[in-house]
Design a protein around this nucleic acid. Structure first.
Length: 282
RNA sequence: GCGCCGGUCGUAUAGUGGCAAUUACACGACGCUGUAAACGUCGCGACCUUUUGGUCUUCGUUGGUUCGAGUCCAACCCGGCGCA
């Protein structure tokens, strides 16, 4: 079984830095696991690693799509899995690094996610319906999915119906085989320290020209509505707003990660580094 | 000083005689196998309780009317606007 390193954790805990360090040491390449860093031009606001900080280590799944267009987990998964395979073929070690738990899980757990594009016409139709009505439709189309889905979650119901309509009733496997051993490493900071880090980071964002970045995105044709979707940094951001929202987000990240008991948590990146080396030597 | 409006659970609000009291945000817990910084569910005065349950303390302050007051009345305090 090929080993793959996984570095996850809350925002601003130093994941990218640790990833580069370990990559240098063990001849690795990095696969980003961040739902927003996949977009070109979202650099400052997403805290994307700079060319200089990469120190020559190849990074995958950064800047792969135009922000005008949407991106989905399914696409992420496809790209990440093929990147992983290629890196191993080159005799190197993949390091998945990021804070989007859902993206990470689809890669690590080998969930099957066929690509189904958004169907705007269908969506417009479904949007007017209540969750209860949507649930009835889904039950008819795909009773298996209806069994697991949250019957009150409109957004997910619509997506499930969209998928069921596109794929029909073809039975599909839930999980594909994985030949990787994931070494799960988490970085976390106590609340007060995390807060300071976030404040520092946000201050730097504005200094580095967040507002300018937004202006450029607009110039490139990204609509206001789209910007709002891309995150709170991109829609009328103020220092206070971004700090408080980021804090909130960091908390949510943790509730996701908490569920995976196999993650080994560290406060200090250097002890995480040491532990990772030991794991690879095994 | 006169006139008007207003002071409600962290904030913003609803509530004109039966209310521990609406909604939103924030906050907390949880879920998440398909847009994930999204989305959903639950909780949010205190204490007790197996419960559609009980007790206590709350709507600026003090007093009054009433079986019953956030709601009506009086005085006072604070804020906004208008006239002086």
């Amino acid at each position: 079984m090929k080993k793959v390193i996984l570095i996850l954790g809350q925002t601003a805990t130093g994941k990218s830095d640790l990833a580069v360090k370990i990559a240098k040491k063990i001849n690795g390449e990095i696969i980003s696991a961040d739902s927003r860093q996949v977009y070109k031009g979202l650099d400052i606001g997403t805290g994307k690693i700079t060319q200089k900080e990469m120190r020559g280590i190849p990074h995958h799944l950064l800047d792969v799509v135009n922000p005008k267009r949407g991106f989905s987990v399914a696409e992420y998964q496809k790209h990440a899995i093929s990147a992983m395979a290629e890196i191993i073929k080159r005799g190197k070690i993949p390091i998945i690094c990021g804070g989007t738990g859902f993206y990470i899980d689809t890669v690590v757990n080998g969930i099957i996610l066929p690509e189904v594009p958004l169907n705007q016409k269908l969506r417009r139709q479904l949007m007017t319906k209540s969750a209860a009505a949507l649930f009835v439709i889904l039950k008819k189309l795909d009773s298996a999915r209806a069994k697991n889905i949250d019957s009150k979650n409109g957004v997910r119901l619509i997506r499930a119906i969209e998928i069921a309509k596109a794929l029909g009733k073809v039975p599909r496997p839930k999980i594909f085989p994985q030949n990787y051993k994931f070494i799960k490493t988490g970085l976390y900071l106590p609340a007060d320290k995390l807060k300071k880090r976030i404040e520092k980071r946000v201050k730097k964002m504005f200094q580095d020209g967040l507002l300018n970045e937004i202006k450029n995105l607009k110039k490139a044709g990204v609509s206001n509505k789209r910007l709002e979707k891309l995150g709170f940094e991109y829609f009328n951001p103020t220092y206070e707003k971004v700090v408080s929202q980021t804090l909130k987000y960091a908390k949510r990240q943790m509730t996701w990660f908490k569920r995976d008991k196999k993650i080994r948590w560290f406060t200090s990146p250097s002890s995480a580094f040491a532990w990772l080396q030991k794991q690879l030597a095994k």
